[in-house]
Write a protein that binds this DNA or RNA. Structure first.
Lengths: 334, 334
DNA sequence: TTGTATGCGTTATCAC
DNA sequence: GTGATAACGCATACAA
């Protein structure tokens, strides 16, 4: 229970000065020191179970090898694989992740950003709303957006190809004979909601179909339920509904059940994300698979790149998606 | 993009010495300083957007207000709500969470523990296997176990009442007329697996039933599938299967389907955890609900307590559980 | 009540 | 190639 060994202890044991021990232990400066003494130092460090005090190092070097990761809520099944990917990606470079939940509340978000900055983090990975992102960019800490992006593209981002996904879904439904497709869109304020909405307008336009849209207040089942009821009371003729994401799609399921319409008998439903267990819903959900884990890993890579070269141009990585056809879509009733 | 303000800047602006500013800003020492100067300092700090440099503070005080949180894999749906609860619980006290995934690999776990210790964390919350816990306890950093515990009770822990849950399930099945109950247990090495297994033996014994057990290699659907096949090939007479957790129960579903047995028509199945979306499986799963979020919050509370008083006796908190009866259990066929 | 002095452990800069 | 020294920003024991 006595104090952990310091570099001074290591140096003493190896019969060198602390500065030399520091150089010997740091891979980047190892070259400056005689190979034999370097070995002696390494040996001493191992014998003592020496681990550098990161607070001291951090104070001196102004880096911490810690990244701040902000998500709205870890309980949203989209985020765990992303965060896991981030963690794995960071770890390879000796970085760790400080994780915070914002509940989408800008106030809370700002608090967290401030608190994390105070903790000398080297960068941010944000999976939160776009307004906050702008704020974080403000703070001059390397920042990467994951699964979200800002309109102007000033901040590096990693997203799934939302537009391609929507086009795949529209084509899929068109091939099943549907011509009256509604869209229960996610919130306009979130880039995912917005991009999918825009893509829906595009895709229906180029297919010569009439767009019919209702916005959900949030990417939740409850909001999806409410929006679907609004959509179908105004447009009972719809035979297919594209939901803004899987949770909204589950809301569609229950809303349609309330209305006495069957899925996919009366109405086909599609989701977005292919989150865990939607393959086991009743009916199993036709959706677009986005590579959550890879999104996270790529975001980590981008952040590390950014930390290494803060003034490099902001990359925007878009990862491919894939249509997953299941039981919630069927040919239109004649 | 210039350097963030230091306490010296604040002091200068307030026309006092840095030491006074430090005292004024620290709630614990605020009493030592004149209220008016304290206000002046606070004002200056606000104006400058001052945030204390945690590396410096940490170096000086040997505390970091950061806790290490280790889980096997965040993608396992049990953990996100726990981690969220931890985060919320820590935040109230100004703490943040450094999150790491171990994949249940003791090697990786040790690496993470070492790395986090090097980062001056103030404590650990472990949701990982028990052997590692013993190791972590070794390192003389305050540690709390969540959803796991060690046999000897030397480490504070927060768990759900596994025994009570199993008894509820056995009684439920007995009331439905089942007398041939099998158990697909989780790994013996994990306290959850072990405790539920022991409770199953207890509960069947006191009901005068014959225990029939098969161990799954892991708390996964795949392992549950395999173990269920073994169990039923040895004991085709079973009319009910208690799975070690929900994922294993999903493995039971698919294994029973492979064997041409229906759920709950031929065999009733129960899970444990009530993880998200098992209410929407086909059939919806009868299971035991454990308070994941509260488990995390309570663990955070316990850790903070422990940090404040490291030599206090190790509490073991057991949270109540609740039977959730759904469609995967039905009266036994006559 | 406030100011002065010192040290936490590390690394960068200088001198040898 | 190595040693001496200073500085990172903060908090505290001591002096005033």
């Amino acid at each position: 229970m006595n104090r952990p060994p310091t570099i001074k202890d290591v140096a003493e044991r190896a019969g060198v000065h602390a500065a030399t021990a520091s150089r010997a232990l740091n891979p980047a400066t190892r070259g400056m020191v005689n190979a034999r003494t370097a070995n002696r130092v390494a040996e001493a460090a191992r014998a003592l179970g020496y681990a550098p005090n990161s607070a001291a190092r951090s104070l001196r070097t102004r880096t911490s090898s810690v990244a701040g990761v902000l998500v709205p809520d870890l309980r949203n099944p989209v985020f765990p694989p992303i965060v896991r990917g981030i963690e794995d990606g960071l770890r390879d470079a000796g970085y760790m992740a400080l994780v915070g939940n914002t509940d989408g509340d800008p106030e809370r978000e700002r608090e967290l950003v401030t608190a994390m900055r105070g903790r000398q983090i080297d960068g941010f990975i944000l999976a939160t709303s776009s307004r906050s992102a702008a704020f974080a960019a403000d703070v001059a800490v390397p920042t990467v957006l994951v699964n979200r992006r800002t309109d102007n593209g000033g901040i590096p981002s990693v997203t799934a190809d939302n537009a391609a996904g929507i086009h795949l879904l529209v084509r899929h439904l068109a091939e099943l004979g549907h011509t009256r497709l509604g869209h229960v869109a996610g919130p306009r304020e979130l880039s995912t909601g917005w991009e999918r909405y825009r893509a829906y307008l595009d895709a229906t336009a180029s297919a010569g179909l009439e767009p019919v849209v209702e916005f959900a207040d949030a990417f939740t089942e409850t909001a999806g339920h409410a929006a679907t009821l609004r959509l179908l009371s105004a447009h009972p003729e719809l035979t297919a509904v594209l939901a803004g994401n899987d949770l909204i799609a589950l809301g569609c399921y229950s809303a349609l059940a309330d209305l006495g319409r069957t899925v996919p008998g009366d109405v086909s439903v599609t989701g977005f994300n292919d989150m865990p267990f939607v393959d086991r819903q009743r009916p199993s959900l036709t959706t677009v698979r986005i590579p959550h884990y890879d999104l996270g890993r790529e975001a980590a890579r981008l952040l590390l790149e950014r930390i290494a070269a803060p003034d490099s141009p902001a990359k925007r990585v878009v990862l491919p998606v894939e249509l997953v056809s299941r039981d919630s879509t069927a040919p239109v009733k004649s």
